[in-house]
Design a protein around this nucleic acid. Structure first.
Length: 274
DNA sequence: ATGACCCCTCTAAGGGGA
């Protein structure tokens, strides 16, 4: 079984590339993030024509996740139990002119499904924006709640949670740690949240790079950063022992980051012999 | 050459990404 995860940075904008990539790589299961698309507007016909079942979870212009599967799709979960809403503290909670602050919304950042024998989650972890901001606290709360929600599933059978975690697990996972001093994605609490996920019995399936020995999955669009290999490994595959022991290959498909109109993230592709 | 931000929409004196 070939599984993959890809932050596509808008499924509508990426549709031609996504179609070609599906035909070329032929994954059995694909987790997508940042689809930026309401569920009912998800362009599923192309994937269906290639033999995929589709579940999309999205509510509009931000966030959005999906799973495509050729090996069955069932027991769908739109979000996880206890998934927190972004709820800004007083300093951000509406202006004085608003009599009532808008209700917090649970953002479409997680979708789970059974794909054949495999429990799969497609995750788009909140960015965090700035250390100690309300968005950063939300990111840590979100990861803590995820750990609680997934605990029982990790032990139940073949399990993988993959997606854009918006955390570089180690300093080796960013092109220059000094550039990220004081920034999100590299802080101790974020890395500790990943470590606590691993205590459930999950392992970080580190892919091989097809160039430079740095398995980065994201390169900013600006300043030729891809071409200078100034990237980060923030798209992660967290597998339980059953799945991790079944990994036969894992790689970052940096070819998908080249050329016209790419996403700023590259797919991670994992081959399993379950 | 892989090539020097890009996605969305309230189309900007914008929001968000990481």
């Amino acid at each position: 079984m070939r599984i993959a995860t890809w932050n596509v940075n808008s499924v509508a904008a990426r549709l031609p590339r996504l179609q070609g990539w599906l035909q070329q790589v032929e994954p059995d299961v694909v987790c997508l993030q940042e689809t930026k698309c309401a569920a009912e507007a998800f362009p599923a016909a192309g994937a269906r024509s290639l033999g995929y079942e589709v579940v999309a979870h999205g509510d509009g212009r931000w966030n959005g996740v999906a799973i495509l599967s050729k090996v069955g799709l069932g027991e769908v979960a739109l979000g996880f139990d206890g998934q927190p809403a972004y709820a800004p503290a007083g300093e951000e909670a509406g202006g004085a002119l608003l009599a009532v602050a808008p209700a917090p919304v649970v953002e479409p950042r997680a979708v789970g499904a059974m794909c054949g024998p495999l429990r799969v989650w497609s995750l788009y972890v909140p960015n965090g924006r700035a250390v100690d901001s309300p968005h950063y606290r939300y990111k840590l709360q979100w990861l803590a709640a995820l750990r609680v929600a997934l605990a029982a599933e990790v032990a139940a059978g073949p399990f993988v949670a993959m997606g854009d975690f918006n955390i570089a697990p180690t300093d080796a996972d960013v092109w220059d740690p000094s550039v990220f001093a004081g920034a999100t994605h590299v802080t101790g609490p974020e890395r500790q949240a990943l470590a606590e996920l691993r205590t459930l019995g999950l392992r970080d399936v580190v892919p091989r790079a097809l160039k430079y020995d740095t398995p980065y999955t994201y390169w900013d669009y600006r300043a030729g950063m891809f071409h200078k290999n100034q990237g980060m490994r923030i798209d992660l595959v967290y597998a339980n022992a059953t799945v991790a022991d079944a990994v036969r290959d894992a790689y970052v498909d940096r070819e998908a980051r080249k050329g016209k109109a790419p996403s700023d993230h590259a797919p991670v592709v994992v081959d399993l012999d379950l």
